[in-house]
């Protein structure tokens, strides 16, 4: 077996570990930003009092109490499940439509005005419609997520295909790749440049819209818990639920989107001088 292959497994492993550590190390910056936010929050608390704005510590304590409560877990997981399935739905539907539109100018021309229409309709209107169609169920939340995040995923996928390097297509064809092969090995890969930022945006939208739809459709989950907190004027609990929903989003984003993106963007990092990588 040639030498370069023997080394490669160890090297690849070392490379990957290095990248993971580097990524974790960059977490300090995120932590610093969160501390800054907490400081501003604390200042607001001291200025307006606990009834308007509970202190960050108090909020975290409330969140901790919720974390110890199995019922709260059920509530949180319900929203998580709805947001993630809704996101998966929009990723598949929007991605597929976008790719088709990217390859077919006619579809693009038909789809663009529709995207504008969908963008123009406020999500709240969709919530009302979905409530009438599906009642207070998972389907309501998923439908609203799908409609709210579809345009951005669609445009991200389409843009990636439209702006692809046609020279690579030609090259693949010259070496005997059929249309399917060309799409899988060359086209799809180039879409990721624009598709991934769109997916990250869509994931954030999914969580926000899920909570909103739950609150308005009275469908339980974190939105339902927020509605309860509003009725009881329980600021600490309301803020704790907000913290939890943001926390869930961060967990999903960093376990689902970023590892894949990091793996796909290795070559981009290779181009950077080491000083910029941090």
């Amino acid at each position: 077996m040639p030498k370069i292959l023997q080394q490669s497994l160890f090297e690849r492993l070392a490379d990957r570990t290095g990248r993971v550590l580097e990524f974790l190390w960059s977490g300090w910056a995120g932590l610093a930003a969160l501390c800054l936010l907490a400081a501003v929050w604390q200042a607001g608390h001291e200025a307006y009092g606990p009834f308007i704005l509970t202190s960050p510590v108090e909020t975290l304590r409330a969140a901790g109490a919720l974390a110890a409560d199995p019922d709260a877990w059920t509530v949180g997981l319900k929203t998580l499940q709805r947001a993630v399935t809704g996101f998966a739905l929009v990723a598949v539907v929007g991605g597929a439509l976008g790719i088709v539109a990217g390859y077919s100018p006619a579809t693009m021309r038909l789809a663009s005005p529709l995207v504008t229409v969908i963008l123009g309709v406020p999500p709240i209107a969709w919530i009302v419609l979905a409530m009438i169609w599906f009642g207070g169920s998972d389907a309501t939340v998923r439908t609203v997520i799908l409609v709210a995040a579809l345009p951005v995923v669609f445009l991200g996928a389409a843009r990636g295909i439209v702006t692809r390097d046609r020279g690579l297509d030609r090259m693949a064809r010259a070496f005997g790749a059929g249309p399917v092969r060309r799409f899988v090995s060359v086209g799809l890969r180039q879409t990721t440049t624009t598709l991934f930022p769109a997916l990250a945006l869509a994931l954030g939208t999914s969580f926000k819209v899920a909570v909103m739809a739950e609150l308005l459709a009275n469908a339980g989950g974190i939105g339902g818990a927020l509605a309860d907190a509003r009725i009881n004027l329980d600021i600490a609990n309301a803020l704790a639920w907000v913290v939890i929903s943001v926390g869930l989003l961060i967990v999903v984003e960093y376990t689902l989107i970023y590892p894949v993106k990091g793996e796909l963007d290795r070559w981009r990092r290779a181009a950077q001088p080491w000083g910029i990588k941090r």
């Binding site: 370069i4 390097d165 020279g167 690579l168 030609r170 090259m171 693949a172 010259a174 070496f175 005997g176 790749a177 092969r181 090995s185 060359v186 890969r189 796909l264 290795r266 070559w267």
Partner: peptide, 27 residues
Amino acid sequence: HAMIFQEPSLLPWATAEGNVAFSLKLA
């Protein structure tokens, strides 16, 4: 047949090795 273009037309996300392997895979 094989073809060499005016631009190298390499896959930017693959290493040099991966680019050579691409044609082998297609073959």
